[in-house]
Design a protein around this nucleic acid. Structure first.
Lengths: 241, 241
DNA sequence: CCTCATCAGTTGTATAGACAACCGAAGCTG
DNA sequence: CAGCTTCGGTTGTCTATACAACTGATGAGG
């Protein structure tokens, strides 16, 4: 059964044994595993060694351990296939309005240091923050916050409400052309609030783009942080010709 | 310092104390923490209690623990620019990081439909697949699979072993310059194997880039799928000049 | 100079025991 | 019957000890 002193730790052997037992269907989803005491007797090891193996299984997401109740096999995680067809594409090389944009909030606030640095203004200066969500095929796919320096665009909130688009709003203020300066792409787990806004499970990561748009003279006009549901969105980068 | 019997486990108190100490800069990136023995003396607890706290810090991605050496504070994020000319080691040395590349596997296989389409060859044609891991300052940051059409580059495996770099390998075959055609960026949770290769916690997402490199005439020479540890790598997209 | 063995210091594994915290069911009490 | 207590079984924490495995430096021997 287990072999001692062969270079493979006992808890690893137990972990791998139970792993195959679970994934091969020996224990079904929701089943309760034997108690730590029973397992330690069955494998002939100390209870702590069993606990080490169980901790690893929990980290793998195969089981969940409940205080005073026992260890239970988790429902198999839905593994979203990376199908190349069903994904929406966000093309960074193009400047186009995302369809299905929903205005969630528009307020004037003081710029925190990060926003201030991006827009090249003083921290604490007033900026207009517009929060909106993007939908496609009835599915929430993005959640974005855009920051505009208010000194440059007074009354932006009202204009945005009327026009409903960043491009048209900026044009109203005389900015006919603007371009993306640099985009930073990161991935992380969502906060509870972000997961709710994106209508996606908390365990799925989000793709985030942070970008600064500048006008023709190179002056920052918008700083945007956009969260994408990673299950549905891919980002494309194409070198411009 | 620590309070016993107040409902909060000792290891949690230690974990949170060390967490703030690290993020507040008490220990800098790359610094070695005191040994488990010293910490156990300092906090007045058993070594195993310290180990529990360190394990949690490691899961958080704040430290890494190395057998026989010690625990080290992880370093901050790395910026990985994606542009028409993207070269792994160039990117890193420009940020004064020490690049490293480890060849994990090199085999000739038949192209699956996805690879074939990307390289514009017949499905089933033989391609050379090179799997390697990228490092910066000794830390794993990427895990990549690169596909090359074998018809165009016979004996690629041997050449790659000798040169250890995509750029130098292609140069050996007369490709002096190549550029990135299109990059697709997605995010998802890693498989157990991917997390292991990236030496990152299983609950942290990975950033993935898929790109095709073409030679001066526009013929595909390489298709690459590169996984980045999202905790430590950000992708930068700059408008191409 | 290079190679190898050794050694102190470090983390990893395994064992053992004790008690706390929690859960659920069974039994008691009004 | 509702509410409460008790109790056995479970997981969580902490301590203690011992040894294995690994790392890096030091020094002996060629």
């Amino acid at each position: 059964m287990l072999s001692r002193g062969n270079g493979v730790a006992l808890w690893r052997q137990i972990h791998s044994k139970m792993e195959t037992e679970i994934s091969s269907g020996g224990y079904g989803p929701g089943d309760r595993l034997p108690s730590e005491n029973e397992l330690s007797g069955r494998f002939g090891v100390n209870r702590h060694t069993i606990r080490r193996a169980l901790a690893a299984l929990e980290e793998d997401g195969l089981i969940r351990v409940e205080h005073g109740r026992g260890s239970f096999v988790r429902e198999p995680v839905i593994h979203y296939p990376v199908s190349r067809r069903t994904r929406f594409s966000e093309n960074l090389s193009r400047q186009r309005r995302r369809p299905g944009s929903i205005l969630l909030m528009a307020v004037d606030i003081e710029a925190d240091p990060m926003v201030a640095e991006a827009l090249d203004i003083e921290p604490g200066a007033v900026v207009t923050r517009i929060t909106n969500a993007g939908e496609a095929d009835g599915r929430r796919i993005s959640y974005a916050k855009s920051y505009f320096p208010r000194a440059q665009f007074p009354g932006m909130v009202r204009v945005y409400r009327e026009t409903g688009s960043v491009t048209r709003t900026l044009r109203h203020f005389g900015i006919d052309d603007y371009s993306r300066k640099r985009t930073r792409i990161i991935a992380r787990m969502p906060t509870v609030e972000e997961a709710r806004e994106l209508e996606q499970p908390k365990k799925r990561p989000v793709l985030i783009t942070e970008s600064v748009n500048v006008d023709a003279r190179g002056v920052p006009v918008e700083f945007g942080i956009c969260l994408f549901a990673s299950d549905w969105v891919q980002i494309l980068v194409e070198p411009s010709e």
